[in-house]
Write a protein that binds this DNA or RNA. Structure first.
Lengths: 216, 216
DNA sequence: GGGGAATCGATATGCTATAATCGATACAAT
DNA sequence: ATTGTATCGATTATAGCATATCGATTCCCC
């Protein structure tokens, strides 16, 4: 079941399954059916089965999937079993909040250090070092860091991205509301709140309009 | 150009156009072509034209779209021109970071107040009130709030969502890594970092593997 | 041991989104 | 004025994804 080409949409659903599976109490039955998963997460049972088929080696009819091994399979597939090192650039409020969030270990992510153009202190609350941004590329190369997390203002984002790439980074997690121009082999994952807000805003407008229609 | 049914994917691209358009200096030519936009943002020119056709009343051949009116059209379509009130639940690190982010005004979003199960203080740094969560539903009803932002731990998310809905809310921005069960007319927009991490993690694994292959 | 129920896996269908093509339009230059 | 070129807008094709259907498998109960 490994080495299959998995579409992004499947990938984005896998963490949902994983979280739900991990939340099931220990004393519950050791098996779970795709139907049950689908109902719990509000999706089609066929899709769940298809997704699980990508990463696991199958369940058994009338029984379902073994919870424990399913969790292992997904985690292994997502690479949560071996840690990747990352650096964070931009020690503002958002950057500090991310550094303070301890839950990343669970996903195999380890933030080594933060960088800032104008560091206020030399350590975060958690004791991680904060360096001047001039040392970014060199740090990445010497520590073989593969992932960069950008939490700087939009204007500075492209420049930071360029330096990250110069440092040999392969993936960028971009929290800045800006489009990044990068070579094709570099992956940019945009965590853009503006897009989410757009979806919400349009939905609300539609709701308001609907209410007015009803009143008429 | 109004009242068209617009797919979510289009919706998510619109903020990108908007941000880029707003960043163009004042003294630049007042028109911009779909081709130029496409190149700048790294997408197909056809898609850009199609997207713009949904919200604007058209550009002119050889000239392009009038920047100013294009910005207006997009903002109006996204509802950024009239503000919507929101409440935030969970005054932890992430919640505080969001409250402190001033840029939401630009998107027509106004966070009225924060709620917490155990408020440490009664005001945020910015002077917004923090209430006990028991007052949530009542507050939403009396202030006709339509949007709730959830930044509580996963365990508490569903309960908070239920109270928001009881308070008459129509849209939820969910930062908790949990699936929310809601009635069909309520929109839940999940801002789940786990999904982004999954995409990044899998990409990195593939990269590492590729490198090993080359070395062989 | 046999029938029934539940579940999995695979195949087939339909839909939506993206990409490609083509004609129409409007400005500019000669 | 006429030709050339850049750009838009509509139509068509392709592909990816989600959904539905069907047969096969396995367990439980009688």
């Amino acid at each position: 079941m490994e080495d299959k080409k998995v579409s992004k949409s499947v990938l984005k659903r896998l963490p949902g399954y994983l979280a739900y599976l991990k939340n099931i109490p220990e004393n519950a039955p050791p098996h779970i059916s795709a139907t049950a998963l689908a109902n719990a997460l509000g999706m089609g049972e066929v899709q769940v089965r298809k997704d699980l088929a990508m990463v696991s080696d199958g369940g058994r009819p009338k029984i379902g999937y073994l919870r424990e091994s399913l969790i292992d399979d997904i985690e292994q597939f997502l690479g949560y079993d071996n840690t990747t090192d990352a650096v964070l650039i931009g020690a503002g409020k958002l950057g500090q909040a991310l550094m303070g969030y301890g839950g990343f270990d669970e996903y195999g992510l380890n933030i080594l250090a933060a960088f800032d153009a104008d560091p206020k202190t030399d350590k975060t609350e958690e004791g991680k070092p904060i360096y001047n941004i001039t040392k970014l590329a060199h740090f990445c190369r010497t520590h073989k860091v593969l992932m960069g997390i950008i939490t700087v203002p939009a204007e500075a984002a492209q420049e930071v991205a360029d330096q990250l790439i110069a440092g040999g980074i392969k993936a960028i997690w971009n929290f800045a509301p800006a489009h990044l121009d990068v070579p094709p082999n570099i992956l940019v994952q945009n965590e853009n709140m503006a897009t989410s807000l757009a979806v919400l805003s349009v939905h609300l407008q539609a709701q308001i309009k609907e209410e007015k229609e009803v009143k008429k």
